[in-house]
Amino acid sequence: MRVTLGDPLALIPGFEQAHREQTATYPPVSPEEMGWQPVHTVYVPADRFDAGTVAAWGEAALDLMRRHLSRKDTARFFEMHEQTARAVHERVTAKLAAEPVEDLRIDFEDGYGGSPAEEDGHAVRAAEAVAAMHAGGTLPRRWGLRVKSFADGDPARSVRTLDAFLTGVVERAGHLPPGFVVTFPKVLMRDYLEQFAACLAALEKGLGLGEGELRFEMQVEAVQTLRFLDAGLAAALGGRLAAAHFGVFDYTASCSLPPHEQRLDHPACDHARQVMRAAFAGTGVELSDGSLAAAPASDDRYAVRNLWWRHVSLIRHSLADGFYQGWDMHPAHLVSRYVAVYHFHLSRYDEYLGRVRAWEERRAAEGGTLEEPATIRTVAAALRRADLALGNA
């Protein structure tokens, strides 16, 4: 073969460095390597949290489901095929009995009602409860706390609570149980992220933990935050940034939206989620949507079902937007969360499986579809995500 250029690499100085930076910033992950991500984060105010809270939420959710949502109702009320509805109902019932909460966050910020003088005591009691749950095998697979924001002007209070909580857990459990993450809210300045990461590094050293063992989630709760989100942020924080969570109510307030428009499916929220996705795509930073700030107005069937219908519609909107995790704030939310998530994954599972098999066998899928490689990677990733969410993996 005749060529004109003798050594193409000589014409591309700096390529190796650029490629190393690409791999570090956007680590390649195959669908088979995709890790588990919880479908939700449950927030419980620290002054109302104890070792029995998770079990109590599960029992309350199961009770609501038994009284207000039969298998037959599931198909009709949520517009599902009867066979899928039967599978969804059975899976949700089993999930609420076995693992009602996948990700727990003990809240010392917006949902917290304790005074500064009481916060030290609540941090110690929360640590005692977590250690007891770990010993009893009831601690969720992912867990942690949300501290106060540095934007409030008192970072020492935030770090003190985190320190007391972590010190208490490690002393009582003998180590830091797996799955820990801390939520860092209202990040109005990029500097706060680096300052908080430095505090985590100091705590690791003081507690004798492994380097990088303490990771955190940032909350995107203001328009200002969108201005400094970029792909280099995760690398700049030394791999400590585990996730970015969207805060719908603070964000919509920062946009000066009227109260009745503070909702997850508002176009302003759609835009914010797209900015988050563009900033963190391919970096390994997980994305989570926000919450529905509503509980059933009463215990009657109409009020409970009205809440479930609205919650399911919002979760479906998030899932269609590629946000596979959200926040839950009330036991009733657990029912609608799992109904929406399981229906989302089960309704197309067989179709996706058929498309992957057709690709592997070098034939057109059902309906004569000829797949693009990028599409098949997406379909395979969707199957992997479904298996993880449904407990098949």
Results as ranks from 00 to 15, higher is better:
residue 295 A to Y: 00
residue 255 C to W: 06
residue 198 A to C: 13
residue 49 F to S: 07
residue 41 T to H: 09
residue 148 K to L: 07
residue 164 A to I: 08
residue 328 D to C: 14
residue 25 T to L: 10
residue 137 G to W: 05
residue 221 E to S: 06
residue 305 R to H: 13
residue 90 E to F: 06
residue 6 G to E: 08
residue 30 S to C: 02
residue 374 A to R: 09
residue 4 T to S: 12
residue 226 L to V: 04
residue 303 A to C: 14
residue 130 V to D: 08
residue 3 V to M: 09
residue 318 S to C: 09
residue 287 L to G: 03
residue 231 A to V: 11
residue 244 A to R: 02
residue 190 R to K: 04
residue 316 R to A: 10
residue 120 D to W: 00
residue 200 L to G: 01
residue 374 A to K: 13
residue 255 C to S: 01
residue 348 R to A: 14
residue 287 L to K: 05
residue 143 W to N: 07
residue 361 E to N: 10
residue 149 S to H: 04
residue 250 D to I: 12
residue 8 P to V: 03
residue 160 R to N: 12
residue 206 G to Y: 10
residue 114 G to V: 12
residue 90 E to H: 09
residue 41 T to D: 11
residue 285 V to Y: 00
residue 186 K to Y: 05
residue 120 D to P: 14
residue 99 E to C: 02
residue 319 L to N: 05
residue 215 R to A: 03
residue 181 V to R: 11
residue 128 E to W: 02
residue 140 P to V: 03
residue 159 V to E: 05
residue 272 A to D: 12
residue 323 F to A: 02
residue 111 G to Y: 05
residue 3 V to Q: 10
residue 97 A to N: 10
residue 119 E to I: 01
residue 22 Q to W: 05
residue 370 L to F: 02
residue 153 G to S: 10
residue 209 L to D: 10
residue 259 P to K: 00
residue 301 R to A: 15
residue 183 T to W: 05
residue 97 A to E: 13
residue 271 H to A: 06
residue 15 F to S: 11
residue 231 A to F: 03
residue 94 A to K: 11
residue 316 R to F: 03
residue 182 V to N: 07
residue 72 K to C: 05
residue 383 L to E: 06
residue 23 T to A: 13
residue 129 A to Y: 06
residue 248 V to S: 12
residue 238 G to A: 04
residue 286 E to K: 03
residue 213 E to Y: 12
residue 331 P to F: 00
residue 81 H to E: 12
residue 386 A to I: 01
residue 379 V to D: 11
residue 46 A to K: 02
residue 100 P to F: 01
residue 186 K to C: 00
residue 176 L to Q: 10
residue 385 R to Q: 09
residue 182 V to P: 01
residue 376 I to M: 14
residue 129 A to M: 06
residue 313 S to T: 06
residue 298 S to Q: 03
residue 219 Q to F: 12
residue 75 A to V: 04
residue 329 M to A: 11
residue 312 V to R: 08
residue 321 D to P: 09
residue 23 T to G: 12
residue 124 V to P: 00
